[in-house]
């Protein structure tokens, strides 16, 4: 249904490392789930507009007035790694 390459492609997009067994299992389970979801193909959706929101509202805006920032301590208090006032991440090797 959904082959392992697709699972791996999608896992890479989602930046999730999957163990071999996980990838195998997912490829089967996702196949089943998508098979079930394919039920939606029965529905005629011509001329139906998509609903991205549960409620129809529009033009929700705020004024351009400043609010105080978080304290420096709060910003960095959860950081796994930091240096001075910065978050520190491993080297970016594409």
């Amino acid at each position: 249904m959904i082959d392992k390459e697709t699972v791996e492609y999608v896992a890479n997009l989602a930046r999730i490392e999957l163990k071999k067994e996980e990838a195998n299992m997912l490829s089967g389970q996702l196949g089943d789930i998508l098979g079930f979801i394919d039920k939606l193909k029965e529905v005629n959706v011509d001329k139906v507009l998509p609903a991205s929101h549960a409620i129809t509202v529009s033009n929700v805006l705020r004024g351009d007035s400043p609010k105080g920032p978080l304290s420096a301590h709060s910003v960095l208090s959860n950081a796994p790694l930091k240096r001075e006032k910065f978050f520190l991440v491993p080297k970016i090797i594409e």
């Binding site: 400043p66 609010k67 920032p69 006032k85 910065f86």
Partner: peptide, 14 residues
Amino acid sequence: GCSTEFGKEANSQT
């Protein structure tokens, strides 16, 4: 509502 001012101390406008 954070300020957009340029050149402030790192992560101080968050």
